[in-house]
Design a binder for these strands. Structure first.
Lengths: 105, 105
DNA sequence: GGCGAACATAAGTTGACACTTTAGGAAGTA
DNA sequence: TACTTCCTAAAGTGTCAACTTATGTTCGCC
């Protein structure tokens, strides 16, 4: 999760991710959407791939990338868990107070 | 969302966030769980507060912090949207191919 | 084999950031 | 007021990461 989090913390990488979410694009096509140089995009793609957020497929001299939503699964689970367990804690707290009030009445 | 993402990309800040998720803790109590110095924790708390991930409440000479799950809402929505729209795109793609097959048969 | 296209990798620069030590401010206590 | 506690603010330092230009590397084509 750490790697995925670091990866999507960078705005350009989030943009790349949305670009290749629905369609497979080559590195050059991706780079065409940005102001930075090709190598910069290449490095970003490497980070995204290392984090498991994109897949790479070679086709001749080109490399095609596409999003891999499973790579975000752990992060999604972490966030949802954060909510759920927080709600559970609040619930337990409320029940504890309720029980205390019952004893005092 | 950007700020929240950068904030939780740092491991120590994630640990802080889980520490104050269910109970309100003072800056000193939080710092007690880490090896780094107090000021370092203070800076992390500042970042978390700036991102809307924790609330701060003063009580005498102490400052009490607690997680604010709403601060993660945008990020959660982004991740869920990433899945949902991706699935929609795949569905549309499948339907398009299905229609094409129908015409050719 | 030679050549160009599409990318990746290498090397170097710059800015951000997580940390440190030092100093300052606000609240409680004698 | 003086003193202590708790914490933040300021200033400095080392490391990392995002970018640049320059240099491979791999593939298709003549």
């Amino acid at each position: 999760m750490e790697a995925a989090l670091k990866a999507i913390a960078e705005p350009n990488r989030r943009r790349i991710l949305t670009l290749v979410r629905d369609e497979e694009l080559s590195a050059g096509e991706i780079a065409g959407h940005f102001d930075v140089t090709g190598p910069a995009i290449s490095q970003h793609l490497k980070v995204l791939k290392g984090a498991g957020l994109v897949s790479e497929r070679r086709n001749g001299t080109r490399r095609l990338y596409q999003a891999r939503p499973e790579g975000l699964y752990d992060l999604k689970a972490f966030l949802e868990g954060f909510w759920d367990e927080r709600l559970d804690a609040l619930k337990r707290e409320a029940e504890r107070k309720e029980a205390k009030r019952g004893r005092n009445s």
